[in-house]
Design a protein around this nucleic acid. Structure first.
Lengths: 226, 226
DNA sequence: CGATTCACTTGACAGTGTTAGGTAATAAAT
DNA sequence: ATTTATTACCTAACACTGTCAAGTGAATCG
């Protein structure tokens, strides 16, 4: 058993340095992989390319990550967290309806600003996650999605939603699908000369307005659409 | 010049047979490729696999298609046409609004029934198409998309749409994005234990209702939501 | 009959993700 | 202090991919 915690301070420092160095190369791999993934897309970046970018041999990566997919997954987890935090920053807006609008804007803004990253997060089938209930690793989009559902639920609690949309999960799915559809359709058809899509940022308001108009209860102050 | 049309009926028949045979193997390649694409996805099916399925050598495919992408493209063109025809079959419904609802249903139905095919048609960036104005090859989704825009325009011509949605291109994009988002989000997250999405067929009505409620002018007979 | 065409095959090339086995430096054990 | 064990990393390779240059052999043409 060589796993006993060393008490000698010199040995401790040495061991700490070794662990720090390992963590550093691991982070270097992550950084290089992220840069190449967002620049050229995940399919077009190779293990050899990642390794060359940081002066290592391709096989060195496999000492830190099981395979390419695991490397991808780690980046996804980081980015899901970042996106969740960004959306959570909107949480200060008191009106839940307005908050949903702002979230939609932020979501579409992120998607069009980081298309490759968005592809990676929401357009690739992630491998099977640990499905155990008490899973140690947080499920990727949990934060952002829960925030969305909670906001919808808050609006529902204020009795501002119509009957079929009172289920927060349903309206959340509609809103998410709406902005997700705007973004992904843009990615695949933005240069289609026949379809001539509007830029998502220009229509996300219309999308929200339309969906909200359907979901909102016709309160007296909202029935008269300008 | 051996391209002069032969007059000898025997030679004509022989030449016709050769051309027919070539067309047959070409079609065999297409059929095998489609079967493998929809079963295992495009990335997972190999040229060698397609060739083996029809008893040819991989390189034989390259005598009929420039590369894998060209083969994929040809299948896309066929399927776009089929989908356009299917959507066009709804054209008998007189009310344009109800027609849009039916189209949304058919669209989502096709997507969930043929996920791999839908991926191929709407989730992969198609290669650069011939962008010349008088392009000989019809742009893939032209038929279906024009039908959608025309139906929205018909509703607008009947003065049934509100101001911001009177531009047929905008409302068409919203509707398309809505159903596209429902389908694609389902594909990537249907087994996500935390998100727990509803099946697209179960919420496409809600999506249409909500969007339509926002887009429709509050005509007297429609202001009272049941 | 000789020449030509052409659908198809053979064999290869460069590139991919990935792995078995080796190396050398450090840490632990005796 | 010498030996053993660990381990971060490398070398060399495997199996696989899409693709192509060169060849084959049968059908067609002159």
């Amino acid at each position: 058993m060589s796993l006993s915690a060393p008490t000698d301070p010199i040995r401790m420092a040495s061991l700490a340095r070794r662990e720090r160095q390992k963590a550093e190369t691991r982070q270097a791999i992550l950084d290089a992989a992220r840069a190449l993934f967002v620049e050229h897309g995940v399919a077009a970046t190779t293990m050899r390319g990642i390794a060359a970018a940081i002066g290592y041999t391709p096989t060195a990566i496999y000492h830190h990550f099981r395979d390419k997919e695991a490397l991808l997954l780690e980046l996804c987890l980081e980015d899901f967290g970042a996106m969740a935090r960004a959306l959570h920053a909107i949480g200060t807006i008191p009106d839940p309806i307005e908050r949903l609008r702002q979230m939609a804007h932020a979501y579409v803004g992120f998607a069009v600003a980081n298309p490759q990253q968005y592809r990676l997060l929401f357009m690739t089938e992630l491998p099977d996650f640990p499905l155990e209930p008490g899973s140690p690793v947080p499920y990727p989009g949990e934060g952002a999605y829960r925030f969305l559902v909670d906001t919808v639920a808050e609006a529902a609690a204020q009795q501002r939603l119509r009957a079929p949309y009172e289920d927060p999960a349903v309206l959340a799915q509609l809103l998410w699908s709406g902005v997700h559809g705007l973004a992904t359709l843009w990615f695949t058809h933005f240069k289609d000369p026949l379809v001539q899509l509007r830029h998502p940022s220009a229509v996300v308001d219309a999308m929200c307005d339309a969906l909200m108009c359907g979901a909102l209860r016709p309160a007296p102050q909202e029935v008269g659409f300008p």
